[in-house]
């Protein structure tokens, strides 16, 4: 039982990160029907920016005295950086192809992914960038179950970001405009909504969320690497498909499910296969229910 609960918490931590990444896939797909294969790179870039910022603070000795401020700053800088990076990527690699076939944009996305990943390798090196390990060392102990402060921080922050995104998309005027743009771009223009701006905003939000997940990943696993966007990127994509691509609530749910399945699969079946479960789910969903759990029929949370 303790083991089960422990795993549940681990699954929540990992699943939350997948959910944060999956949102970028699903929102971009919702608005321009593109699978942004470069999305995993924003996750990796966020992880790097976090490592750089935290290393800087540690270097000047600010980290021990003000850990919360340092962490907040690293999140804000990484999220902002990746948001602008994504806006740039969209303008350079996708916007010129908007009127072309979907395949050309898809290939452009693949190219962008390779370009960004190699860019990180060239500028940051092929070795792991280490995250400071002294952050949030303590643990809460409840009998046999123990949860690290770090896990609590990650889960809380993830929850806050997910709630924030829901409010933005479903309660604000700009969120309405986003959903309207996803539904009918011509009509949106006729009510003064600029689809270019909404598309930029969508990329920015998606990349910002992925960047936050990148830092969480670095904090949780201790380091980041230039190619770390690849596997979690595909798992998050599987999560978005599982939830019903284009559906925001679906992406959140899908992320949690993939995270849980991975942790429980590794714990109860075999750790060797932990990366396989997400792909099995992806294939099964595509085969049996391509619209995903929230797709088409239960569809009021599509963008």
């Amino acid at each position: 039982m303790e083991y089960f609960i422990q795993q549940l918490i681990n699954g929540l931590t990992l699943g939350g990160m997948y959910a944060l990444i999956a949102l970028g896939y699903t929102m971009v797909y919702g608005v321009i029907q593109l699978i942004n294969f470069a999305h995993g790179e924003f996750f990796a870039a966020g992880g790097y920016i976090g490592a750089i910022v935290l290393a800087y603070f540690a270097g000047v000795g600010y980290m021990e005295s003000h850990p919360i401020i340092c962490l907040t700053a690293s999140f804000m800088i990484a999220m902002a950086y990746c948001a602008y990076l994504a806006i740039g990527v969209e303008k350079i690699a996708y916007k010129p192809l908007r009127k072309q076939s979907r395949l050309s944009a898809l290939l452009s996305a693949l190219g962008m992914s390779i370009f960004l990943s190699n860019g990180m390798m060239l500028t940051q090196g092929v070795y792991d960038a280490i995250y400071p390990s002294e952050l949030f060392q303590g643990r809460f102990d409840f009998g046999m179950i123990s949860v690290s402060y770090l896990q609590v921080t990650i889960v809380t922050l993830t929850a806050a970001l997910l709630v924030g995104l829901n409010i933005l998309v479903f309660k604000t005027k700009i969120g309405m405009a986003m959903r309207a743009t996803a539904q009918d771009k011509t009509m949106s223009a006729l009510v003064a909504i600029s689809s270019n701006r909404i598309i930029s905003l969508t990329f920015a939000i998606g990349a910002g969320l992925a960047a936050s997940a990148g830092i969480m990943y670095g904090l949780y696993y201790g380091s980041v690497k230039y190619d770390m966007g690849f596997v979690p990127g595909i798992k998050a994509f599987a999560a978005a498909v599982l939830g019903g691509i284009g559906n925001i609530t679906g992406a959140m749910l899908g992320g949690l499910i993939i995270g849980m399945v991975e942790i429980f699969g590794a714990g109860y079946i075999s750790g060797e296969y932990k990366d396989v479960f997400a792909f099995i789910i992806l294939i099964a969903v595509l085969y049996f229910k391509p619209t995903g759990i929230m797709g088409e029929n239960i569809d009021d949370t599509r963008v």
Binding site: K173, A177, R179, D184, M187, R302
Partner: peptide, 12 residues
Amino acid sequence: FPRLSVEENLIL
């Protein structure tokens, strides 16, 4: 906008 409410359509 089919998946926006009547009021949201007006707000937009």
